[in-house]
């Protein structure tokens, strides 16, 4: 599968990465190089194989459904690039 310039722009939008028009051709070439190399996996017969999702070779633990932490608004907001009192700020989204 090979990506065309429009597909590169679509992936960039999904990934929330600004890509300028002048960069599309280079990115397209690099991504197609990697995807072409990955296509070697088509040689592998995976019929009937269960996918391995995680790195842990044991069942995931569940913890008790109780509050373990909280009430740390200042610590949470301490690294905000911009804030207004106890709120994060973003550009206006509703007119």
């Amino acid at each position: 599968m090979s990506l065309d310039p429009e597909a590169v722009r679509r992936i960039a939008r999904l990934a929330r990465l600004r890509v300028d028009d002048g960069q599309v051709a280079q990115i397209q070439g690099e991504l197609n190089g990697i995807l072409g190399w990955i296509d070697q996996l088509n040689e592998v017969d995976v019929e009937g194989v269960e996918p391995l999702t995680g790195g842990a070779l044991m069942a995931m633990r569940l913890r008790d459904d109780v509050v373990t932490d909280g009430d740390q608004a200042e610590a949470v907001l301490a690294n905000a690039p911009d804030r207004d009192g106890p709120f994060y700020t973003v550009p206006k989204v509703v007119e």
């Binding site: 599968m1 992936i11 991504l31 592998v44 995976v46 996918p51």
Partner: peptide
């Protein structure tokens, strides 16, 4: 971008699911 593509609708099975099966092997 590679990760976004292999997880995107229509390509998930061909790439990500396939990779998880090879990982099992």
């Amino acid at each position: 971008m590679i990760g976004t593509y292999v997880l995107s609708a229509g390509y998930y099975d061909a790439y990500y699911l396939k990779a998880q099966k090879v990982r099992a092997l």
